[in-house]
């Protein structure tokens, strides 16, 4: 009961103080809002990037071409050998004939050229489409595959994949750096806000001490004030995430650039982000005020 009373008092004092020092509180709230917007943006971007990366990674296929003179027995042998490699998840065989048919369907030019090929003069090769378990070991796996007899070439689009993943990684790093910088700036602003509140209430604090208020009782309102500032500061970013992301998702039809890169569906994604933003706001506010209390409130 006593704890509840003290908490109630802390919240009451903190709210009063936010209103009393309105202009200063506003400065902190605006700063925390901007920070949290960037935090939200960073989260949206990096989670989507993670999503893209996963999708691309699961889409990477290694294509193994056999030599032109490979016989049906050779194909069976290679298939057996491939099955022995641990990192290989699935193996699909595609014969010359199937490839030819596929290509003919795709393009009229191919259709005219290839329509009178017979199997022996085909310049296409029998191939295996292979998916790997661990994408990071794909290079090793490719080397192992190459050693198998009758294999001509192994291809897995390594450069494209590497470049794409590299770009995504860079985007993530930049957003993280921005978030960290902004959080530090915000914490400093909150320290200043709370510092001024502490100074404006010095007399009250000294009397509180004289009449035997415990340190926790004296400190609590200031810490709560920081948390309130953080919570208020998260309102605008949260609204922006909820409405903004949904609007963007609908506008783009859920994809970016191509069907390959799909955005994360808004629900429950935006609510999770909102919760993270709110908690971040409260924690940042609390950190700032706790620091100010430690530094300026010598009790």
């Amino acid at each position: 009961m006593k704890l509840l009373r003290m908490l109630g008092r802390g919240i009451r004092d903190a709210s009063k103080s936010v209103i009393r020092n309105f202009s200063l509180s506003m400065a902190s709230i605006s700063c925390i809002s901007i920070t949290l917007m960037v935090v939200a943006l960073a989260l949206v971007v990096s989670l989507n990037v993670d999503n893209f990366t996963n999708m691309i990674e699961s889409d990477v296929t290694m294509v193994i071409f056999l030599e032109g003179n490979a016989t049906t027995e050779d194909v069976d042998k290679v298939s057996d050998e491939l099955e022995k490699i641990k990192n290989i998840e699935s193996i699909t065989f595609k014969s010359k004939k199937e490839q030819q048919e596929e290509m003919m369907k795709e393009d009229e030019v191919f259709e005219t050229i290839m329509s009178d090929w017979d199997e022996d003069e085909s310049s296409l090769r029998d191939s295996f489409l292979v998916k790997v378990v661990d994408l990071e070991k794909i290079e090793d796996t490719a080397k192992k595959v190459k050693k198998i007899d009758k294999i001509d070439n192994v291809n897995y689009g390594e450069e494209m994949v590497d470049r794409l993943l590299g770009a995504f990684d860079l985007v993530k790093k930049i957003t993280i750096a921005m978030v960290v910088t902004l959080i530090i700036v915000t914490i400093f602003l909150i320290i200043n806000t709370i510092k001024l509140t502490i100074f404006s209430r010095k007399r009250e604090i000294s009397i509180m001490r004289l009449v035997g208020a415990s340190n926790a009782t004296i400190k609590l309102p200031f810490v709560i004030e920081g948390m309130i500032i953080g919570a208020i500061g998260s309102v605008v970013p949260i609204l922006l995430v909820i409405y903004g992301y949904v609007a963007m998702y609908n506008h783009l039809g859920g994809i970016i650039f191509s069907n390959l890169i799909k955005l994360i569906t808004p629900e429950p994604f935006v609510y999770i982000i909102s919760l993270v933003v709110l908690i971040t706001g409260i924690i940042v506010g609390m950190l700032g005020s706790a620091r100010a209390v430690r530094k300026y409130l010598k009790v």
Binding site: R203, S206, I207, R209, L210, V211, G212, S214
Partner: peptide, 17 residues
């Protein structure tokens, strides 16, 4: 604070809010 709760203190300058 444990000590202060057992005491009352009065100053020359009243120290009221």
């Amino acid at each position: 604070y444990k000590l202060r709760r057992k005491l009352g203190i009065v100053f020359q300058d009243y120290r009221l809010l």
